[in-house]
Computed example of a mutant assay.
Amino acid sequence: MEPLYEYFIALFIAFIVTIATTPLVKKLALKGGFVDQPSQRKVHEDSMPRIGGLAIAFGAVAGLIYLQPPFEFFWPITIGALTILILGLIDDKYTLSPSKKLFGQMAAATIVVAGGLQIEFISLPFNGYIEFGLWSYPFTILWILAMVNAINLIDGLDGLAAGTSSIALTILFMMAFTDGQILAAALAIVLVGSGLGFLVFNFHPAKIFMGDTGSMFLGYSISIISMVGLFKNLTLFTLIIPIIILAVPIFDTFFAIIRRLLNKQKISTPDKGHLHYRLLALGFSHRTTVLILYGVSIFFGGAALVFSETALWMSILIILFLGLLTQVMAEWIGILGERKKPIFSLVKKLKKKTLLRQ
């Protein structure tokens, strides 16, 4: 295991390379027509370049070149990553249909599984375990797809996906480093560096978006890190840990699917029912909304570290409670927003009266 300072050097390299390459990627995006146009569903008002995920990938590669960790399953992971990046570029250029995008994501996941990286069994409490057998293939593919789309669906505000992913990756690094998982720690720390470097340009007001190129790449990377690291000695609890860390995007995605099914809509139908849109509707500023969700992500990440010392059954109960709490909070915020922000209106009226009296 490399000393801790080596990982921080790799983080710094990834950070600097991402900062250096993002302006170049921005020029490429504008020249090549990789531009996100404003619409009623989106919060930005001007056309924005949107393949910033390339800069994140460049930074991560630079950090890995410095660390040179032992890279098990190098080719399937690398080819899968390239497939995701190419898929993201095509989608950022032409806006693929949900079915075509899902097909491409499944292709990348299948490459990984065919290369030998699979979730083959889960150890249970009391010395039992479940072997998936042939089901290990679809189970692993579903895990990768879940992570890819969880990050992809929260990429709705400036800096939200990059910041949330960086927080989750920081927690994953801490757990992997403590557990001596060299590859998982290396992958996590370089992505933290590149994510923070990209935030220099992506935090509100953003100068460039990561696009599906970036959000899908980050989700894919997180799924791989969990499998090569936390899943090395897989127990039912270590399966729960990444879900706790990424509770905000995962539960937001899960309840978005339920909401659309109840409304008799397609699962892929976009809406403004996500937590970040509802916070905006309540009257919070763009930047404040993102910072609130950063705080929630930090809370869940810290909870994951604490729960690692907790009994399995208690961890399951806590994660279910937190998930329901997140949804209740989102519904409550939505109700307040629909009532035309009475709280904020009252505050504004009081401020105006105070100013007039002065």
Rank of each mutant, 00 (worst) to 15 (best):
F177G: 00
F201D: 09
F201K: 03
S194E: 13
A162E: 04
D179P: 00
I208E: 08
G195T: 05
D158A: 03
G211V: 13
T178W: 10
P205Q: 14
A206E: 10
F209I: 12
D158Y: 02
G211P: 11
L199H: 02
A186K: 09
A176T: 02
I225V: 14
S165L: 06
Q181C: 07
A206G: 12
I225N: 08
L169P: 02
F198P: 06
I171Q: 04
F173V: 07
I225M: 07
I171A: 12
L172F: 14
L191W: 13
P205Y: 13
G159S: 06
Y220M: 11
F209M: 11
S166C: 11
M175F: 11
L218R: 00
L191D: 01
N202T: 06
S194Q: 12
Y220G: 09
S165I: 06
I208L: 09
L191T: 14
L196G: 00
F173W: 06
A184H: 10
V200W: 15
V200H: 14
D179C: 03
L218V: 07
G197F: 08
M175R: 05
L218K: 02
L196M: 14
F203P: 02
A168N: 07
I189L: 08
T178M: 10
M216Y: 00
G197P: 09
V190Y: 08
G159D: 06
Q181N: 15
I189F: 07
F203D: 01
L172I: 11
N202E: 08
I224A: 04
L199A: 05
T164C: 15
A186T: 10
I182H: 13
I167M: 08
I167V: 15
I222P: 00
I225P: 02
T213F: 09
S221T: 15
K207W: 03
T164L: 15
Y220I: 08
L160T: 04
G159W: 03
L196I: 15
G163C: 09
L187W: 02
H204P: 07
M210R: 04
I167F: 09
S194K: 09
L183F: 12
T170M: 14
F217R: 01
D179V: 01
A161S: 14
L191E: 05
A186P: 07
H204Q: 10
